[in-house]
Simulated scan of single mutants.
Amino acid sequence: MTPEDRFPGPEHPDSGPRHQPDLDVLPYGTYYEPEPAGYAEAAYESETYSGYGGARYLEQHWPATGQAHNVHAPQAAHPGYEPTLPDRPSPVHQSDDPPTIELGPPLAEPVPAYPYPAPAPGEPVGPLYVVGDVHGYLEELRAELRHQGLIDADGHWAAGRSRIWFLGDFTDRGPDGIGVIDLVMQLAAEAAAAGGYCRALMGNHELLFLGAARYGDEPVQSTAGTASFLAAWRLNGGQQHDLDRLEAHHISWLSRLPAIALEDGHLLLHSDTTAYLEYGESIPEVNDAVHDLLADEGVDEWWDCFRRFTKRFAFRGDAGPQAVHELLDAYGGSRVVHGHSPIPYLTGTVHADDGAPPHIPGPYIYADDLAVAMDGGVTMEGRLLVARLPI
């Protein structure tokens, strides 16, 4: 049983606990290993092929993570601060529940100027990177971004006109979710000054975190009984110190994140599910639908959205390539890149015979090479993945 995203409610074919026989029947896939330290370009790559997601991992060319670097500590919330959202209409019940959008406003503090030249007219864009689920592991994120040359020793943007997309799930389970959000917001401002950008998708844990802050223990209706956002957030690794430090500018930024994006032919999603198709036939329609829901709908509609984006494993097995094609046909692109489902669960290699933590060489390519999984399982002693696209 995967511990990811547990919630009160019925199980679904691609969501929630999985029986071990299901985890054993997996598609052929490819592991991509990141570039070793010291290589200036991303031309180096090595692949390990594995039948049924088998664990034939390569140890060579696998660099040490390196030393983490400190950045500015996040500001603590004012004493007695309680994050709130504006009053909304009363919730309207929806039946049949299955149980996270451009960057927000500028930082409250002035952003320092950086000595980057402005892009010339018609100048090509910089390289594209994606970051898997962080889940509050701030030090691991700093170390990996530093290892990739995307931030400097002081934790500031060092990637020039590069482009970075975070695939969602900043908080819960790890020690400093608010610190992760603060760092991403800081890098977004610094990247813009350099002619690049740092953007992020909304994951299901963003929906859960915002729901816990807004609705607390207010009951939500489900076919399995009554639950609440706060209870589900705690069950899924919610950290009280993150909720205590959540401020209005965090809420504003998180609430405006897109649910889906298309970049250089890569369809970027948080969740490996086709539930996005239930919110629109185009990327703008999906993002507008999620934004409208967060702004105007009630607790039950919000809960339903959270649970739909908590589904997983849609791209595995014989039907996986067809599920990917459904998304690509609707939204464009030639390959899906997603987080959400940790690679050790996706490949069925979560438990080693010797009890050792899972070893993740890099992103996992599967579903006839149509899908790239980026959640390296940092919450289970795996790896926080940062990769340059295309893989």
Rank of each mutant, 00 (worst) to 15 (best):
P13K: 11
H19T: 09
H19A: 12
Q20V: 15
L23I: 08
V25Q: 15
P27M: 03
E33W: 10
E33F: 04
G38W: 02
Y39L: 02
Y39G: 08
A42Y: 03
A55C: 09
A55I: 11
A55Q: 10
L58G: 11
A64Q: 06
T65L: 14
A68F: 08
G80N: 09
P86R: 10
S95I: 08
P115N: 14
P117K: 12
A118E: 13
A120I: 05
A120H: 12
P124V: 01
P127R: 11
L128T: 06
Y129N: 04
Y129G: 02
D133E: 15
Q148S: 12
G149W: 08
H156W: 04
W157Y: 06
W157K: 00
W165L: 04
G168T: 12
G168K: 00
G179Y: 00
A200Y: 00
L201T: 02
G203S: 02
N204C: 08
R214Q: 15
V220L: 08
S222H: 10
S222Y: 02
A224T: 01
A224Q: 05
G225K: 05
Q240R: 11
H241K: 13
D244W: 02
S255H: 05
S255V: 03
I260Y: 03
A261W: 00
A261C: 04
A261D: 01
A261T: 02
D272R: 02
G280V: 14
E281K: 09
S282P: 07
P284F: 07
E285M: 11
A295T: 15
A295Q: 06
W303Q: 08
T347G: 04
P361W: 09
Y364I: 07
V378S: 08
L385R: 01
L389F: 03
P390K: 09
I391Y: 08
